[in-house]
Amino acid sequence: MKKEGLFYTVDKDGKILCELCPQRCHIKEGGIGFCGARKVEDGVLYTLNYGNISSASMDPIEKKPLYHFRPGKFILSVGSFGCNFRCGFCQNYSISQTQPNTQYLTPEELIDLALKQENNTGIAFTYNEPSIWYEYIKDVCEKAKDKNIDFVLVSNGYISEEPLESLLPHISAANIDLKAFDNKFYKGVCGGDVKIVMRNIEKMHNKCHLEITTLLIEGYNDSEDDVSKLCKWIADLNPNIPLHLSRYFPSYKFDAPATSLERMSLCRDIAKQYLNYVYVGNVQDADKNTYCPKCGELLIKRTLFDTEVLLNNKNCPVCGHDINISL
């Protein structure tokens, strides 16, 4: 379905200026924006992906990854197509950088589908970049405001301020990819600006449940200095924000070797100097449990097939320490 986009103006040359994200594309008649999901026709900016779902799955909430939000629950995860980054290592490039086959669902149909699922806490907008699916996400959220549904974003955090502030009241939780702490990496590898992502993380961390993921690529964004700076910056916001350090494997345009287990362990140890909750992803047999940062008591036990919550409400059952978690 084609629908007029939000957040655009006409510039002095008659081109459309899309202001949804910081790419701020000037799009001529018949042209498509950097994200591949917004097109100008007859002087109007239209979305190309409204309601078009390329992927849908019932996932454990921990797979997003969200470890401190509704542990043990499932979430209906949906994605469309397009992205406002060009990450050469993208794991989902078949939908982020192309237009795959899709199935159209109205906002009402997606909400109904979510409500029918067992042990489902809500809907996660994920797989490709959800911010460029903005109009559909906002419609879904607004139409479900009385349905007791959690809405989750798994995003690169590259969105303009006004759209973000308009959407945030609807969002229960988010996992933001902070891809590096080096703007050369962001510009050269992703096509973005790390300062904008940092600004948006700052805006989000007090308005919804927030977790952060960094994919570590050996020789690119894993220096001890960069990891220390990244973790210190997160800790200055709140040392209780969970950080997921994810292991890179070759994908898309990147053929560098997979990040070594030794490097993952080193970066995890650095992160733990600053942050109370650090998890390692894409590593078989890694400890995925949550422990009390004060006394070390096991609080959430995670296995391949089960999640066991051992908290006393939101507190450690041994020392009573308040845990950053949404049950």
Rank of each mutant, 00 (worst) to 15 (best):
I95A: 05
I234M: 12
N200V: 00
G191H: 11
F74W: 10
P250F: 03
E41I: 15
Y67K: 14
S131R: 00
E202N: 14
L310S: 05
K187L: 10
K15L: 13
K3W: 13
A114G: 11
E108F: 02
N289W: 00
N313V: 00
I137D: 04
L298N: 08
S265E: 15
P293F: 07
I270W: 13
D269E: 13
C90F: 08
K253M: 08
M198N: 13
L110G: 13
C18A: 11
N101H: 07
F185N: 06
L230F: 12
E218V: 01
G30T: 09
Q273C: 05
A271Y: 04
F254A: 03
T214P: 09
C25Y: 05
L45K: 07
F7I: 01
N312C: 06
I270D: 04
F74N: 15
I325K: 07
N206Q: 15
N101W: 02
A235M: 10
N240H: 13
H170N: 15
E297L: 00
C190K: 03
I137C: 12
A173K: 12
G30R: 12
A180M: 03
L215I: 15
F249G: 04
G72C: 03
V227C: 09
K2S: 14
C208G: 06
Y67G: 03
L20E: 02
K73M: 01
K314E: 14
H244F: 08
T98M: 04
I32P: 05
K15M: 14
H68I: 09
I171M: 08
P169W: 09
Y248M: 04
E218A: 03
H321C: 10
A124S: 14
R38P: 10
E297T: 15
G281C: 09
K63F: 06
S265Y: 11
K3M: 15
L245A: 12
I16H: 03
N156G: 14
R263A: 02
L304E: 14
L310Q: 06
V194S: 14
L299A: 07
N206A: 11
A256F: 05
H209M: 03
K138T: 03
T47R: 02
C35E: 01
T102R: 08
Y136Q: 11
F185L: 07
P293L: 04
S96F: 04
A174S: 15
F151V: 00
N289Q: 02
P257F: 02
I149C: 01
D225S: 09
M58I: 15
F7H: 12
Y46D: 09
T307I: 05
N206F: 07
N101V: 12
A173C: 09
F125W: 06
G79S: 10
S265N: 13
N101R: 11
K187D: 10
K73E: 00
G82A: 05
D182I: 03
L243E: 04
I75D: 00
K64P: 03
N156V: 02
F81Q: 05
L298I: 02
P169N: 08
G33M: 05
K2E: 15
C231H: 12
G72F: 04
G51D: 11
G36S: 12
A271T: 03
D150R: 00
E162N: 07
I159L: 14
A37W: 08
S223E: 06
E308D: 12
A144E: 01
F181M: 13
L168D: 09
I325P: 09
C25A: 06
F181E: 02
F69V: 02
Q284E: 13
S80C: 11
K145F: 00
D193Y: 14
P169A: 09
Y134A: 12
Y136A: 11
V140N: 06
